[in-house]
Design a protein around this nucleic acid. Structure first.
Length: 912
DNA sequence: TCGTCTCACACTTTTGAAGTGA
DNA sequence: ATCACTTCAAAAGTGTGAGACG
């Protein structure tokens, strides 16, 4: 089914939805939704429409405790330490490792939809140079976000909790014209997968309770061909489909070389003998016989001993590598804890077997060998405890921030969750959540930091100039970070402690040159790729594609913080300026709503000028709060971003929300968990940073630029945070102008602090992950976004401590508390670019999921159970739609036997 | 020339239809 | 006729390397 609230646009009242949707037994075809339009419309709608349907439910239900655990976190961490790369192809490529998680805390009787979306972590483009990922420029225009709906959706909480949930059918593509509904990503960009759990009481209604989860260790860089040999090794060793490339495999290099030789020899012989030889002669035989001595024998030798060895050998080595090369990575810490004892104990031998039985991912788990785990700090163990461990324990699990209504409820959970209050805030957010997302997106831009801000972290690490490399770091003064970081090192400030060398390998580094480039890019903002203009900012700044062209999308933009925050005014309200931009942006299909930098106001944000979008959402918010400067303009731009994200805040009318739930909620909640972790053993927060790509912050972000105005403080740097705020938007901004910064703050602890904590605790992940993405991921992960007064870093700092200290912080690092919706939003849009709205495509495969009889025995008492059938959207929604749903339409099912799974195309453009 | 992307290839796994037997 | 199990072929997933493209 389709969740509406996730995408605010969709969130319109049931009535509305009904118009567009209807249940259908038919296998669901892809149903792409175009949130943008929806969002737009939704915003225009009266608040009440947006509000969630009256809930019969009682708050306080288990929902509040919703937790998600990344089952194969150890595998992910392994990859993360090296720098996870995901192949993207035109035909679509599955992710490996797969996203496999376990949910807990759901109301067994309620139905939920699980969504997967992947958002850019920053607005940079990367290149693998000198054994590390370096920022080489601004990101390309953001594509319409697409959401993969778990085929089992909707299903009862019992259903989800009784099994591991895998998104292995989700495919990634770099084909911007993809009609399959796959998730479209740009190559050589860094992304962060997010999982959303949306309560679906009714087909028409989504998201009363929304929980979003981000696992920092799942960040990855998209590639068309693997760049890092270590990643290739890991993939081969852990992916059953790549068995053939293992040492003992039939398609291993030796074998291939041997075959090649054979061919060559054959050809030679043929050429020599061709005249005399009979074509029928088995060339193979000849070659083999000839070659055997050399290649064959060698192969045999190697193979024999190895057998599984390929795997095994590799495995051990990998861990070693990771360990040695990279000092501890955040992930590592997690790993240790997370890795199930069983896993650890696993002899190398069994991997294959296990794999067979388990998901492919599991193979990865197999990977987790003692050696590997050992790498992780013991301390983490606790937090990480993980997977095998009870949910809360598992470090991997992130507690969610629920946007759920109930949010106010408990959250007793020790480990993950943030204080209840925060929860409540989120709850209110539901819709806001997304908004939050949006904001996040904006953030990147940097509100906090100007262009640089978004990448601040990077800057640090990579370039001395830059602020702290990691997002967190970014916050820190450049100097500090710089000092610590080596140019090449991934630069996560946190990881500074880590030897550069280690970092280098996997860590991302920023290109010194980038800054320049970025700048240039910025100047050219108009160009198709905003990102380019300003890497950091650009990314975020970019308006959602949709917005650009579509009114819808634009609307979001317009929505820009101000609106959303304020009240989701109709698009029309948006700045004219902004609107135009979108058109301009057209650059990508996604077209960024945001107007060129010029539009943006210049004020506070110097950079902004460059980017149409205010670097940070915050700014907008700030602006709102403080009328000032350019912000306004910026806000406009932001809106887009906001809109782009899940955000649809507009839909959400929650009072709380309005109140500025933002700041706190997200922060509190989010933070807390992270904080907790951080403060204590976990460092989760740190972990997050780690996960995020460290180093590579785009140089472009020049420290100096922190446009931000001030309030955000953070210009310093936490772009993300800023974004978050923006997400918060409107409401928050209003209430908490400063709050904006808050996010940033929360999410991003002080750079310094963070650094200290993180770095200490975690080595850079090999991943270049920039931490922070902070903006996004961190926020999310950590949840942490405290309502920090973004304004000053200094402020942030203080907060940071708090965070760490936060009593509530759950011990288990592994468990990731759900991210506050807002945060999420930030991410998605996030960071970067958050601007675009996601496209949702519903795959046919979804349909089946629900078999009431099969699924949970217990019918939802609260509401009438709706049929499991997948929803069918209006086929040609567009025509009818005056509303948001217009975009929804039905896609043809996949011919593939294996359903790809449902995808929603949030973007404004049609899936086809 | 370089970086990036696409494609065909060989291999493995997964899937689902067909066959068999109870 | 139904169900469970096995077998087999096709489809799909995977990394590699050559080549094309800009």
């Amino acid at each position: 089914m389709l969740g509406v609230e996730m995408y605010p646009s969709l969130a319109l009242g049931p009535q509305r939805l009904s118009d567009c949707y209807y249940r259908d037994r038919e296998p669901a075809a892809h149903v792409p939704l175009y949130p943008t339009t929806c969002d737009m419309a939704a915003r225009g709608l009266p608040a009440r429409l947006l509000q969630p349907p009256p809930a019969t439910e009682t708050p306080g239900t288990p929902q509040d405790n919703v937790k998600m655990e990344l089952e194969n976190a150890s595998l992910w961490k392994q990859f993360s330490t090296v720098g996870t790369e995901m192949i993207v192809t035109k035909k679509g490529r599955r992710m490996f490792p797969q996203l496999r998680m376990k949910l807990s805390g759901l109301n067994p009787t309620l139905r939920y939809i699980l969504l997967l979306d992947i958002v850019p972590v920053d607005s940079s483009r990367y290149r693998f140079q000198d054994s590390s990922w370096q920022v080489v420029g601004g990101a390309e225009a953001r594509l319409p976000d697409r959401v993969f709906i778990h085929p089992d959706s909707p299903a009862t909480g019992e259903h989800w909790q009784n099994r591991s949930i895998s998104f292995h059918r989700a495919k990634l593509t770099n084909n911007t014209l993809d009609a399959q509904g796959y998730i479209i990503l740009h190559s050589l960009h860094r992304y962060q997968p997010r999982v959303h759990v949306i309560e679906a009481r009714d087909v028409l209604m989504w998201g009363r309770a929304q929980h979003s989860f981000i696992f920092p260790e799942t960040q990855f860089i998209t590639v068309t061909a693997y760049q890092n040999n270590k990643i290739t090794e890991l993939k081969i060793n852990s992916n059953p489909f790549a068995k053939g490339f293992r040492e003992n495999g039939m398609n291993c290099k030796k074998q291939r070389d041997a075959r090649l030789k054979r061919k060559i020899t054959c050809n030679q012989e043929e050429s020599l003998d061709i005249e005399s030889c009979d074509p029928c002669d088995s060339t193979e035989l000849l070659p083999q016989s000839v070659e055997l001595p050399s290649s064959a024998l060698s192969i045999i030798n190697s193979a024999l001993p190895i057998t599984d060895s390929g795997f095994h050998t590799d495995v051990p080595s990998l861990p070693d590598q990771t360990v040695s090369d990279q000092p501890l990575v955040l992930g590592q810490s997690f790993l240790t804890s997370e890795i199930p004892s069983s896993m650890e104990s696993h002899p190398q031998t069994t991997p294959e077997n296990n794999v067979n039985n388990t998901l492919m991912d599991e193979s990865g788990q197999l990977m987790d060998l003692p050696g590997y785990t050992s790498t992780f700090p013991t301390a983490h163990l606790r937090s990480s405890s993980h997977a095998s461990v009870p949910l809360h324990q598992s470090p991997s699990i992130y507690s969610m921030v629920s946007s759920t209504q109930n949010s106010g409820l408990e959250l007793p959970q020790p480990s993950t969750i943030s204080s209840p209050p925060s929860m409540s805030t989120y709850s209110s957010l539901p819709s806001s959540d997304y908004p939050g997302l949006n904001s996040s997106t904006t953030m990147p831009s940097s509100t906090t930091s100007p262009p640089g801000s978004s990448y601040p972290p990077i800057s640090h690490s990579t370039s001395p100039h830059l602020l702290s490399s990691s997002s967190y770091h970014s916050i820190l003064p450049t100097d500090q970070s710089q000092d610590n970081l080596s140019p090449h090192t991934p630069t996560n400030p946190p990881f500074q402690s880590i030897p550069p060398s280690s970092c280098q390998g996997s860590g991302l580094t920023i290109d010194p040159g980038q800054n320049q480039v970025d700048d240039g890019g910025l100047s050219s903002s108009n160009e198709t790729t905003p990102a380019i203009q300003n890497p950091t900012q650009t990314a975020f700044p970019f308006p959602p594609v949709q917005s650009s062209n579509d009114p819808d999308p634009t609307s979001p933009q317009c929505q820009s913080l101000p609106q959303s925050a304020l009240s989701f005014q109709p698009v029309s309200q948006c700045n004219p300026n902004q609107i135009p931009t979108p058109s301009d942006s057209n650059t990508t299909p996604t077209a960024f709503p945001f107007p060129p930098a010029a539009q943006s106001t210049p004020n506070s944000m110097t950079n902004q000028s460059v980017f149409p979008f205010p670097p940070f959402q915050q700014i907008p918010n700030l602006n709102l709060s403080t009328p000032g400067s350019a912000q306004t303009p910026t806000t406009c731009s932001f809106p887009v971003s906001q809109s782009s994200g899940l955000c649809t805040f507009s839909t959400i009318p929650n009072p709380i929300y309005s109140t500025g739930s933002f700041s706190f909620p997200s922060t509190n909640v989010i933070h807390q968990s992270p904080m907790q972790s951080v403060s204590n053993t976990l460092h989760h927060t740190t972990a997050y940073p780690v996960t995020s790509f460290p180093a590579s912050l785009p140089k472009h972000t020049t420290p100096g630029h922190l446009q931000n105005p001030a309030p955000t403080s953070s210009h310093t740097s936490y772009p993300f945070p800023t974004s978050i705020p923006s997400a918060q938007h409107p409401l928050q901004s209003l209430t908490l102008p400063s709050s904006n910064s808050i996010y940033s703050v929360q999410t991003i602890p002080n750079p310094t602090q963070l650094q200290s904590t993180f770095t200490q605790s975690y080595p850079n992940p090999s991943f270049p992950h920039i931490q922070p993405q902070v903006g996004n991921p961190t926020q999310i992960t950590s949840q942490s976004f405290h309502p920090i007064q973004t304004s000053n870093t200094s402020q942030l700092n203080p907060q940071l401590p708090q965070i760490s200290n936060h009593p509530q912080c759950p011990t288990s690092s592994n468990a990731y508390p759900s991210v506050a919706p807002t945060e999420i939003g930030t991410f998605s849009q996030l960071n970067s670019a958050a601007p675009y709205l996601p496209e949702m495509v519903l795959h046919p495969s979804l349909l089946p999921p629900f078999d009431p009889s099969l699924s949970s025995p217990a019918p939802p008492s609260l509401y009438n159970p709706f049929p499991s059938y997948s929803l069918r959207l209006c086929q040609d929604p567009r025509s009818s739609l005056h509303l948001p749903l217009r975009h929804i339409y039905r896609q043809p099912q996949h011919s593939h036997a294996h359903g790809q799974g449902p995808y929603f195309d949030i973007g404004g453009r049609a899936v086809f």
